[in-house]
Amino acid sequence: MILEAQDLGWQVRAVRIVESVSFQVRKGETLGLIGPNGSGKSTLLKLLAGILSPSSGEVHINGNPMGRMNRREIGQTLAFVEQQSDTSERLTVRDAVELGRTAWLSALQPWSEKDDCIVAQSLVRVDMAGMEKRSWHTLSGGERQRVHIARALAQQPEILLLDEPTNHLDIQHQISILRLVKALAVTSVIALHDLNQAMACDRVGVMSKGRLLTIGSPSEVLTLDLIRDVFGVSARFLTDTDGSSFIRFQPIQ
């Protein structure tokens, strides 16, 4: 099992934000995390990334408890794209992506041609290749998101954690980023809002009030009852001309 959450919990003061979450992710799998705002998706991802330390339970990577790995090892194995992160520094797109190499370079090691290649490739993958020299503050929200993803790719991780990566993206790039993540050999956990996008994941986990309600294949998990209970909307499955199904929502009457 490449990534495993064992009875994870996190609380601030007495408030339990995430509670007894356990699941496993297989190598190469894409797991979608869905749930309403405030259900604990971001907190869970931060626990998985080792940015928050759990108040109970443990995260295992390749069978090793994360608490016993050092930060550099974690950075070489796992990359995390936060829901929001910004800077007021006037760095270029290329600078931002080069940060992804941090865990791979020691203080005495010079920047190499290989690092250059990896950075260039990462930029190509998110369709930002021509924009290397652009300054951060001139980028649109979606372009910034793609740079963040490129930086995570430059980490060459085995595991990719993405917190609502499609939020600021136009439709074309929403589709291409999700397709990219699925096509990569990496294991990924993606918090998503769009249930139709979640349908394209290998498995889906549903968060509600800090707990993992259920986890399984999209067709098992995404039932009309569950959507009504968790999200408070009524849904209908429609079938497209190519035979795939998609969900439409209506407020509950």
Partner: peptide
Amino acid sequence: TFGADSAASLG
């Protein structure tokens, strides 16, 4: 550059 959390996830 993108904050302490981002630094942590960069290793």
